[in-house]
Simulated scan of single mutants.
Amino acid sequence: MTNYRDLSKAGAADALQEFLDERGPALSRLRERLVADGQDPAVLLVEHRRAPGFALRI
Rank of each mutant, 00 (worst) to 15 (best):
D40L: 01
E47G: 05
L34C: 03
D40E: 07
R49D: 07
R29A: 10
D37L: 09
K9S: 14
L27R: 08
R31H: 08
S28G: 15
F19P: 01
A51C: 04
L16V: 10
L16F: 11
G38L: 00
N3C: 08
S8M: 04
A13R: 13
L44G: 05
R50I: 10
I58L: 15
G11L: 03
R49Y: 05
Q17Y: 05
R23W: 05
D40K: 04
L44P: 00
S28H: 06
S8K: 08
R29E: 12
R50D: 15
A36P: 01
D37P: 03
P41G: 00
A13W: 02
A55K: 13
R29V: 02
A10W: 01
T2N: 07
D37E: 08
R33N: 09
E18K: 13
Q39V: 08
N3Q: 05
I58S: 14
R31Q: 11
V43A: 10
H48A: 09
D40N: 12
G38I: 02
L16P: 00
A12S: 06
Q17L: 10
R5C: 14
L30A: 14
P41Q: 00
F54E: 15
F19V: 10
L16H: 08
P52Y: 02
D6P: 01
G53I: 00
R49T: 12
D6Y: 00
E32G: 11
V46R: 09
H48C: 07
L30M: 12
F54W: 09
V43K: 12
H48R: 13
L7M: 10
L30R: 06
A10E: 15
S28M: 05
V35C: 02
I58Y: 14
V43F: 06
P41R: 00
A13P: 04
L27G: 09
L56Y: 12
F19D: 06
M1C: 12
N3F: 07
A10S: 13
P41H: 00
M1E: 14
E22M: 09
A13F: 05
A51H: 13
P52N: 09
P25K: 03
D37G: 13
Y4D: 06
A36G: 04
A55C: 05
A10V: 06
P41W: 00
T2Y: 00
S28K: 10
Y4G: 01
E18N: 10
